[in-house]
């Protein structure tokens, strides 16, 4: 059956996005079966509501963090500090608003957010410095900020949960613009911008080149240090925006719990999306699908009548499945059974 290989099905089968998209679709089907009205979206006061809108809105922070994580992972790195960075961003913004003379104004919110993002850039520079200049292993380098960052956020908030009352600030988390939640719009904008910047400029190619072969890239004149520094700053910025979203959602900065374990969700989203932890080729669309999958999974569990506390168990199952799918041995075993498509096994072995 060699003629099958060149057919449309074979091309589709080779598309790395196939499995993440199928998995997401399967989850959605489960939801519809459990709750036939799952896809229902209604308009109320000019705002869209519905399960799908909720998934998107609640998933926005993960999407943001995962986008930054994708680029870091593509350079063979990893950033464990994004959750702590998100907490710091929320803390800085809330403390500024709470302490300002005019805590309800739009101007205060803008200044607060700018301050928070500036702090994130500084934190990203720190991570990038450790990794690209000092050459510390990324997992260790970012572990520093992962643990110290929460303490830093506690320092900023004085150990209190700082609540604010600023409509503009809360809007980042719960507001609506043109019928859609702001969070969704922000996440989509960052996604589009990242895709544009990485694929329309040469950044994406140079990131992949550094991730695949750092020494060959250096000899070709690629400024790997700048590239690596850039992605860590970008990851911290994304985490900062996510942190503002989380803080805006509750109008409060919780140094202990804001963005807790979000780095793990983000890494999982990246991996589900088909970007290898070994660096190299990355897929932002894959990451988006991965993040949506994780968020949909979180919505599915209560929807099919299982207590949502068991969410972690199901994530673990997903991790195992993803690991199996990426393991050469498991793939080979699958290939032997589905002998209709042997060429993928060979491509892997070659």
């Amino acid at each position: 059956m060699p003629e099958e290989r060149t057919g449309g099905l074979a091309v589709l089968m080779r598309n790395p996005l196939l499995w993440p998209v199928l998995a997401l679709a399967a989850l959605l089907v489960v939801n519809v079966v459990a709750t036939p009205t799952f896809f229902e979206i209604r308009m109320q006061d000019g705002h869209l509501y519905g399960n799908l809108v909720d998934v998107l809105r609640n998933g926005a922070p993960i999407i943001l963090v995962a986008l930054g994580m994708t680029l870091v992972i593509a350079t063979r790195g990893i950033d464990l500090s994004v959750g702590a960075v998100a907490a710091i961003a929320g803390a800085v913004a809330c403390v500024h608003i709470a302490g300002s003379d005019n805590p309800g104004s739009v101007g205060t919110a803008v200044v607060a957010c700018s301050l928070a993002l500036a702090a994130c850039v500084a934190l990203g520079l720190w991570n990038g410095f450790l990794v690209s200049v000092l050459g510390i292993q990324p997992i260790i380098a970012t572990l520093v900020l992962m643990t110290a960052g929460r303490g830093l956020a506690m320092l900023v908030t004085d150990g209190q949960i700082t609540t604010v009352n600023n409509a503009a600030f809360a809007g980042i988390g719960v507001g609506f613009v043109a019928t859609l939640p702001v969070a969704i719009l922000v996440a989509m904008a960052v996604f589009a911008l990242t895709a544009l910047v990485t694929r329309r400029t040469a950044l994406g190619m140079l990131i992949e080149s550094v991730g695949i072969n750092p020494e060959a890239s250096r000899l070709a004149g690629v400024r790997a240090r700048t590239i690596i520094w850039t992605v860590y700053v970008f990851a911290a910025l994304c985490a900062g925006v996510a942190g503002l979203m989380i803080a805006g959602n509750t109008s409060a900065a919780d140094a202990n719990n804001a963005g807790l374990w979000i780095e793990l969700d983000a890494i999982l989203a990246v991996v589900i999306g088909g970007t290898s932890l070994a660096g190299g080729r990355f897929s932002l669309t894959g990451t988006l699908v991965g993040a949506l999958f994780i968020q949909t999974l979180a919505a599915t569990i209560p929807n099919i009548g299982i207590p949502s506390e068991t969410n972690y168990l199901f994530k673990a199952v997903v991790v195992i499945i993803v690991c199996l799918l990426q393991s050469p041995k498991a793939r080979a075993a699958l290939q032997v059974r589905r002998s209709t498509a042997p060429q993928t096994a060979k491509a892997g072995a070659a």
Binding site: L206, S209, E215
Partner: peptide, 25 residues
């Protein structure tokens, strides 16, 4: 180990040095 970027295309491999000297922007 010091030449090819294995997972990138022929085109990207060819243009790497020129692109690197132009900068990513």
């Amino acid at each position: 180990s010091e030449g090819v970027i294995e997972d990138l295309s022929v085109a990207d491999n060819m243009l790497l040095a020129l692109q690197a000297s132009r900068g990513w922007l």
